[in-house]
Structure formats: C-alpha cells, structure tokens
Amino acid sequence: MSFTFLFKTITRDVAKVSICQHVQSLHTGCTLLAAEKALLMKLRKSTGYTFISCKKALEKFDNDMKQAEAWLHEQAQKEGWSKANKLEGRKAKEGLIGLFIREKAAVMVEVNCETDFVARNEKFQQLVKDVAFSTLAHHLNKTQSNAGYVKSVLTGDEICKLSADEETSLADRVALTIGRLGENMSIKRAVTLRVPAEWDVGSYVHGGGSSQSEVAMGRYGALVVFQGGKEGELDTLGRKLGQHIVGEAPESLGNMDDLPCGESETRLLPQTFLGDPSSTVAQFLRGQQARVLDFVRFQCGEKTGEDAN
C-alpha cells in the first residue's frame, strides 16, 4: 500500500468523523433549543410577562420554572409600585362595579382605572374579582352566620389592607396590575351583606363588563335585601327590584304607605315601578307578598361623601 493511498484514506475517514460529530452536535443543539423554547413558552403563558423577561428569569435560575416565576412576580410588583407612585394623582374615574353573591352573603365593590379600554382588559377584571373575593372572605370571617343582618361599608384604604393571599395584600395586587397595564388604578369602596335564613339578596349589574364570570361586572350595580315573595320566583323578584334600583336611583327606602310626590320622587317604595308603570314599587311588592328591607346602589365614577372630604 502506497503512502499516498494511506494518507488519502485516513484524511477521508477523519473528515467523515468530523462531519458526523458536527451533525450530531447540531442535532443535540436543536433539541436543547426546542426544549428551552417550550419552557419559555410555558412560562410566558402561565405568567403573562414578556418573552424577554421570561428568558432572563429562566437564564438566571438555570431553567427552574418555580424560581423563575417567583422572581418575575417579585420584579413586576416592584416595578408596579414604582409606576403606581409615578401615576398617583392621575384621575381614575372609569372602571367597573363587581358584584358577587354566595348563599346568604353578598359583596359589591368599585375598582377604578383611567380608561374604558383598560376596564375591558381581562387583567383589570381579574383585579376586580380579587377585590370582591377577598372583601367577602374578610366579611365572613368577621361575622357569624347566626348574627342576623350584618352590613359593612369599607373605604378604599381599608380594602387595600386586606390580604389577597398569604403573601400579598390587595394594595400589592393593584400595584401589580398598574405595572402591567400602565394606567393609574384604585379601589374606591365596597359593601358587604350577610342576611338571616328567612331573608334574600337580589342583585343586578348593567353596562359593559363581563357576563361570563361568577363575579358580575358593569358600570352600575345594585344589591337589594328583601323578605317574602312567591316560591320559585325569588331570583326573578330580586333581579326586577335590582333593575329598578339601578334605573331609578332611589336615595332612601320610604314606607309602604307613602304617597308618590311626583317625578322627582327619591324614595324607593313610592316610586313608579320600572317593570310596571301602572303601579308603585310598594304596590308591586304587595302583589308579590314581599317587602324590601334595604338596598345599595353603586354607579362607577360617582361622587361619594368620601370624595367631598
């Protein structure tokens, strides 16, 4: 065998090995890249943060999803508080009323933002849910089921101090949502009710928001506490009364025997009933063998006594 032939054979074999190693290396790299991309997509979907932030988090914690997610939330919260401080003072008159009823208890909250566009965003609506659930949980923890009728009105500052979960307050949740959506936001107020077994709570929400959630949302909301009514028709009765309260905006309850005082009537019971203009609310209730005991109406962005202070 000549030296030239031997040299060519060795050179050819080395080249084959090099090519195979390169292809194998490239294939392994592609597999790794695909795995990292899948992890990145999973973190992005579960957290909602940007690809750049998620990539940075995964690199920082060597692809540990749990640590990366915790770090992302921590950074977003810090950025949210920073942005919240910068945006403080900007008017937030839009937003949503959130209303949730659970058995014999109910909560209605108002959460504000700057624009109607953000009010339609699912992250803002999640904030409304968090506020409603946390506020009602606080109310139920403070009251007993046999305590009769219990009604609590909370200011925004009081609500912000409540816990959203074991690690964060509702104030933290507001800051986090501000950081994500870039608008000033605030929790304005809430009312919680708990009624005895023989009473019922009706409700109605109107104007935008979400109808696909267990927390009803819109620009107007009403809770109405009533007793009596025809068996099997209590939900309909509560809704009709809630619709009337939202539409006619009564300021006080009045008495069943009060006479109407004209178009400017602000007492609920003497008002012309929205569902039947031929009768007053009191007359409608008599026909239903029911009576209204209390009601609350919220309109998003309306001025309250707290605003005047």
Rank of each mutant, 00 (worst) to 15 (best):
V14P: 03
V14Q: 15
A15G: 07
A15I: 10
A15H: 15
A15Q: 15
A15S: 12
K16F: 08
K16T: 06
K16Y: 13
V17R: 14
V17H: 09
V17F: 10
S18F: 10
S18N: 14
I19V: 12
I19H: 13
C20T: 09
Q21H: 12
Q21E: 10
Q21V: 11
Q21A: 14
Q21R: 15
H22R: 15
H22L: 15
Q24L: 15
S25T: 10
L26G: 04
L26K: 12
H27C: 11
T28D: 09
T28I: 11
T28M: 12
G29W: 06
C30Q: 12
T31M: 13
T31R: 15
L32A: 13
L32C: 08
L32F: 09
L33E: 14
A34R: 06
A35G: 09
A35E: 10
E36S: 10
E36Y: 11
E36H: 15
K37Q: 09
L39C: 13
L39A: 15
L39D: 08
L40Q: 07
L40H: 07
M41G: 08
M41L: 12
M41E: 10
K42Y: 04
K42R: 15
K42F: 03
L43D: 00
L43Y: 03
K45Q: 14
K45A: 14
K45P: 08
S46F: 04
T47C: 04
T47W: 02
T47S: 08
T47H: 04
G48Y: 02
G48T: 07
Y49D: 00
T50Y: 00
T50N: 01
T50A: 02
I52S: 05
I52A: 07
C54F: 01
C54W: 00
C54G: 00
K55T: 05
K56G: 03
K56E: 06
K56Y: 02
A57T: 01
A57H: 00
A57C: 02
A57S: 02
A57Q: 00
L58V: 03
L58I: 05
L58T: 02
L58P: 00
E59G: 07
E59D: 08
E59R: 07
E59N: 09
K60N: 03
F61K: 01
F61T: 01
D62N: 08
D62M: 02
D62E: 07
D62L: 01
N63D: 06
N63H: 05
D64Y: 08
M65Q: 08
M65E: 07
K66F: 10
Q67R: 06
Q67S: 11
A68Y: 01
A68Q: 03
A68C: 04
A68N: 03
E69C: 11
A70V: 11
A70E: 11
A70R: 12
A70G: 05
A70L: 10
W71E: 03
W71P: 01
W71Q: 02
L72Q: 02
L72H: 01
H73E: 09
H73A: 09
H73D: 06
E74A: 14
E74Y: 07
E74S: 13
Q75L: 14
A76L: 05
A76G: 07
A76F: 08
A76T: 07
Q77H: 14
Q77C: 15
Q77P: 06
K78P: 04
G80N: 00
W81M: 00
W81A: 00
W81L: 00
W81T: 00
W81I: 01
